[in-house]
Amino acid sequence: MSNMADVPNDAPEHCPGTQSEDAGKVSACAGCPNQNICASGATKQPDPGIALVKEKLSAVKNKILVLSGKGGVGKSTMTSLISRALAADNADRNVAVLDIDICGPSQPRVLGVLGEQVHQSASGWSPVYIEDNLSLMSIGFLLGSPSDAVIWRGPKKNGMIRQFLSEVDWGNLDYLILDTPPGTSDEHLSAASYLQGAGITGAIIVTTPQEVALLDVRKEIDFCKKVNIPILGVLENMSIFVCPKCKNSAEIFPASTGGGKKMAQDLNIEFLGSMPLDPLLARCCDEGKNFLTELPDSPAITALQTIMKRIVQKCEEDKENIPIDAH
């Protein structure tokens, strides 16, 4: 994947890439201000960030990515729900959420900490605590106003993610859950490459039932395979809608091609479960309220608990079966 990642933004045309064998040596490099650095071989060294991240995250047991090729399927909602469920299930379990959606951070809102600030200490940035055992870091905390846009190209986003991974003082964590933006581009590649030393436990893939979403989600699964991220499973959100008045259910996003379950079967990935579409859940997220305590009887909660337990089980299994990643 390095050959896709290492052509700088302002590189001359036909730049071979800083990690390439030909870096600094081909005709396109003539006149490039970085020709000497490339030719010296310094750029072919692994990014020092990888080692830094590994050290900083050495006390983090499980690192989970929440991914989806498609936007608006509920990555942030599911991230917040799973992390809240994980934290509520066991008071001794430490959980943290890292929001690497740089252009559209949603976690401060859905976790109810909009407007909070992060503080700098000697050991790094302190995340914002939602519960005693649940913390969050997001670029949303660094913006002056909610309307501020982060108009950044890839390299700046990459730098921010590196800082988030290497300079936040998480403490001892059982679960670090990374919420991602849609797509298969800079943020995803940055997270995958900076975490390659520390090791990624696995990815949770979120989808909705309709084919137009599955289409992009399959691309995300292809991405995971390309960059060697193990997949914990697929989770289908907004599966059915139960009318609050007549209690009949309706398919708002019809699963014309079998939905997430069929896709998981076809691609030989575990299907973790379906979450029904509950308008009250959407409202809780908008208001940053804890859905678990606000609406304990919702069928969505039952589904969530099952999914959370299965994730814990899979993470524990992985620890036993797979030796510590050594690349």
Binding site: M4, V7, N9, G154, T184, S185, R218, I221
Partner: peptide, 14 residues
């Protein structure tokens, strides 16, 4: 293939 991911960083997309 319709399932192929386009795993590109910014400069290639540009």
């Amino acid at each position: 293939n319709r399932n192929d991911g386009v795993v590109w960083r910014g400069p290639k997309k540009t």
